[in-house]
């Protein structure tokens, strides 16, 4: 049999995203922080808890201490590097979890009964409309502060937002006639959801992940700033800013370095979100 008449399926072209320069810079900065977050504990030049120079607190940048020393004379650079796993990692994990559970609940609700769907949507809308900082404060008072509790509380706070976003995007897609076509063909719910709807809302979910990441990073560092987030001896960047407040009037690097790190992280993510959502709109 001559099967050469059938053209072989070409391997799918790997398309590099055509992002604006600023967004590419954002991606590089984000990647940099991600690497620091993963390997920071090993790469840090000093023990983040060691008093390098107890006589020279809030010291300037030197060869020994690239970003100066903090209010107890500890190495700021090492503290930023070891704190990255909280400031970068926690939002990443919680935003991912929130997205996952939001998706799960969204899919589950549509598969189950309609009253349940309505009730769940109302619950989600309610939680979503609460001021997140206030509610995080309540939860911290109720559950205390530890990393697992922070993860659970923040995930729970952001599931509704993910749920709403996924639902809205899926609702838009489900109005398309190709969904009707699949239903007429006799496809089951799962095929329709996972093969026809989900691939079309991936860009949407990515954008929303980014937005949640930013909000969570801001919220977490805020909580730590108030002393209600990551607890000593560990410290995320918000805590670093807070504990070195004394250095503000001297312009000590101990306060500006973590502040700028935090800024660069959130701005980098915003720029990436911009690029993805822009691309999505142009389709």
């Amino acid at each position: 049999m001559d099967s050469t008449a059938v053209p072989a399926r070409p391997t799918r072209r790997l398309r590099l995203p055509r992002w604006p320069v600023l967004s590419l810079i954002g991606a590089v900065v984000f990647l940099f922080w991600a690497i620091i977050a993963i390997f920071g504990d090993w790469l840090a030049p000093h023990d983040p808890g060691a008093f390098i120079d107890s006589w020279n607190v809030l010291g300037p940048m030197t060869h020994q201490t690239w970003l100066g020393t903090d209010y107890l004379g500890r190495d700021v650079l090492s503290r930023i590097m070891t704190g990255a796993k909280y400031t970068v990692g926690l939002p990443f994990v919680t935003a991912g979890l929130a997205l996952f559970f939001g998706l799960l609940l969204g899919v589950g609700a549509t598969l189950l009964s309609e009253p349940l769907d309505t009730a769940l949507s109302w619950l989600m809308d309610t939680v979503n409309s609460l001021p997140s900082t206030i509610f995080a404060l309540v939860a911290v008072a109720g559950f205390g502060t530890s990393i697992p509790v922070l993860i659970i509380v923040i995930t729970a706070l952001y599931i509704p937002s993910a749920y709403r976003n996924v639902r809205a995007a899926a609702l838009n897609v489900s109005r398309m006639e190709y969904i009707d076509a699949a239903r007429v063909r006799g496809e089951g719910h799962l095929h329709v959801i996972f093969r026809e709807i989900l691939p079309n809302i991936v860009p949407n979910m990515l954008t929303h992940f980014g937005i949640m990441f930013i909000y969570i990073a801001l919220l977490l560092s805020g909580l730590s700033f108030l002393g209600l987030g990551v607890q000593p001896p560990e410290a995320d960047w918000g805590a670093l800013i807070s504990e070195n407040m004394v250095g503000l009037s001297y312009g000590a690097p101990a306060i500006f370095a973590p502040a700028l790190s935090l800024l660069s992280l959130t701005i980098a993510m915003t720029l990436m979100v911009d690029a993805v959502s822009h691309q999505n709109r142009e389709r």
């Binding site: 805020g222 407040m245 800024l263 701005i267």
Partner: peptide, 17 residues
Amino acid sequence: IIALSTPSFLIATLFVL
């Protein structure tokens, strides 16, 4: 973008400074 990516405690701190 800069304003909304900056935590409000940082903005407030900078204003004080």
